[in-house]
Simulated scan of single mutants.
Amino acid sequence: MTLPQAARPRLVDFHCHLDLYPDHVALIRECDRERVATLAVTTTPKAWPRNRDLAQASTHVRVALGLHPQLVAEREAELPLFERYLGEARYIGEVGLDAGPRFYRSFEAQERVFARILAACAEHGDKILTLHSVRAVAKVLGHLDRALPPDRGQVILHWFTGTAAEARRASARGCYFSINSEMLRSPKHRQLVAGLPPDRLLTETDGPFVTAEGLPVRPLAVAQTVAELAKLRGETEEIMGLRIISNLRALLRAAT
């Protein structure tokens, strides 16, 4: 069956905090109008029901169930609520680990929560996870190796800033990488992105945390990221755009 034109995505924003924009509902409509396949991540399980309900009729917005590692110190008690909603959610995020200076004190609790989330996802076997891994890529990959076999869930490393060796390790276990405009401002990260497997690339905004000209970027801004990726990798914008859509479809097929 051929999808009608309006149902075919034109762009992909695989990690955006739609509920943190003041015009959340209008932004969902904008994603549908502009045909931006958008994954609306949440930071706490308590945010899931409202986000799910607001996007229920959307063609292009899907909502992920999250428990952000930066909030674990205050929100670990919401883990049972996360597990209660898990059966309803195909997409999981934002979850993961953060070993940055501000959050390292809660790292033991983060690992405890992350391990339980991965075990629960493995039990279900049909989840797509977008993972936070600040200064903790090796730890994240270790948890994945122990708790989430590649055939029990699909993984996207959001805003990946690990090493080339960690990128190879992640690629070998089937991970995807979602790239945002902020990543491409750093020569070091541009070099890293240039070496990632082309069939594992997705785009994201991580809005509203990424800004342009002083304003939070919106999902439609991934068009500029596609252009920058194309230039970085020596391809046309059209080819790169088609590649991102193809990668998304491959990810979704693998998760069924």
Score class of each variant (00 low, 15 high):
67 L>E: 04
71 L>P: 03
155 V>F: 05
1 M>E: 11
70 Q>H: 12
150 P>L: 09
219 P>N: 00
196 L>N: 03
139 K>Y: 09
189 H>C: 14
28 I>C: 02
26 A>H: 14
247 N>W: 03
151 D>R: 09
229 L>T: 02
40 A>G: 14
7 A>E: 07
179 I>F: 03
135 R>V: 05
81 L>R: 03
35 R>E: 00
24 H>E: 03
16 C>I: 04
1 M>S: 12
180 N>C: 03
212 A>R: 07
9 P>H: 06
214 G>E: 10
251 L>D: 10
74 E>I: 13
163 T>L: 13
28 I>S: 05
13 D>W: 02
237 E>I: 13
201 L>N: 04
189 H>Q: 15
186 S>T: 08
20 L>I: 02
40 A>P: 11
190 R>D: 09
79 L>K: 02
23 D>W: 08
237 E>H: 14
253 R>T: 13
81 L>N: 01
148 L>V: 08
161 T>H: 06
111 E>Q: 15
249 R>C: 14
196 L>Q: 04
234 G>C: 13
32 D>R: 04
112 R>K: 15
69 P>G: 13
175 C>H: 07
234 G>W: 11
53 D>Q: 15
109 A>M: 15
69 P>V: 11
240 M>C: 11
124 H>K: 06
169 R>W: 13
25 V>S: 08
222 V>P: 02
95 V>R: 02
122 A>W: 00
4 P>V: 04
237 E>G: 12
13 D>R: 00
167 A>L: 09
146 R>M: 09
251 L>Q: 10
138 A>P: 02
248 L>K: 11
51 N>A: 15
123 E>A: 11
206 D>R: 00
94 E>L: 01
173 R>E: 11
135 R>K: 11
71 L>H: 06
242 L>A: 15
227 A>H: 08
127 K>M: 00
150 P>G: 09
180 N>R: 04
137 V>K: 03
108 E>S: 15
116 R>S: 12
110 Q>C: 15
189 H>P: 11
219 P>G: 01
43 T>P: 14
194 A>C: 10
196 L>C: 09
134 V>D: 08
37 A>G: 11
181 S>M: 05
218 R>K: 14
255 A>E: 08
166 E>H: 12
236 T>M: 14
55 A>Q: 01
156 I>L: 05
3 L>D: 06
166 E>K: 12
228 E>V: 11
212 A>Q: 10
11 L>W: 00
104 Y>C: 15
201 L>Q: 01
125 G>Q: 07
9 P>I: 04
180 N>T: 02
11 L>R: 03
97 L>M: 05
164 A>I: 13
42 T>V: 14
141 L>F: 05
214 G>Y: 12
122 A>T: 07
100 G>P: 10
63 V>G: 01
141 L>K: 06
193 V>F: 03
126 D>Y: 07
208 P>V: 07
144 L>P: 04
34 E>A: 07
88 E>A: 05
11 L>P: 01
104 Y>G: 14
223 A>C: 09
116 R>L: 12
214 G>H: 11
55 A>E: 00
87 G>Y: 00
5 Q>L: 11
130 T>S: 07
76 E>P: 06
39 L>Q: 08
106 S>F: 15
159 W>Y: 08
245 I>P: 03
175 C>W: 03
138 A>Y: 05
214 G>P: 06
23 D>E: 13
184 L>R: 08
202 L>R: 03
141 L>D: 02
52 R>H: 11
